[in-house]
């Protein structure tokens, strides 16, 4: 029983940790701030999910489940909201985009006004 629990814990913790590392490496490597926000929001959320699930399986009390659920709920709500706000602030400041960006309809609409339906 303990061995099964340990194996599940190791799998969950390991996948969470590797996604967190990949997210950090993406923040260093990707070409512009929007791509970095892709990496940070997605990988941090799934990484924390994996690590919290591993912690709950290993500790195994209702206390841990409730605390981990609260932390996870907060993370799933707050990480995307934080990246929306950062992206909005960066765009309103006129952040230079990657050279291969095909089109920017937000800049078009800020210049000409949004289309009427």
């Amino acid at each position: 029983m303990d061995t099964v629990r340990d194996v599940i814990t190791v799998i969950l913790l390991g996948s969470g940790l590797s996604f967190m590392l990949i997210g950090a490496w993406g923040v260093v490597r990707l070409p512009d701030a929007y791509h970095r926000l892709h990496a940070s929001s997605k990988c941090s959320t799934l990484g924390l999910f994996g690590m919290l699930a591993g912690a709950v399986v290993y500790i195994g009390t209702v206390d841990a489940l409730i605390k981990a659920a609260l932390t996870l709920l907060f993370t799933v709500v707050a990480t995307p909201v934080g990246s929306h706000i950062l992206a909005k602030a960066a765009h309103s400041r006129g952040l230079r985009q990657w050279d291969h960006t095909l089109s920017d309809e937000l800049a078009d609409d800020q210049r000409d006004g949004p289309p009427q339906v």
């Binding site: 996604f19 791509h35 990496a39 997605k42 291969h100 095909l102 949004p114």
Partner: peptide, 22 residues
């Protein structure tokens, strides 16, 4: 989503075609 972005990060070179759509 995580597997996709992990593949983009870990393989050399970029092949995104980004766009901001409404």
């Amino acid at each position: 989503a995580n597997l996709q972005i992990a593949r983009e990060i870990l393989t050399p070179g970029f092949n995104q075609t980004p766009r901001i759509v409404r």
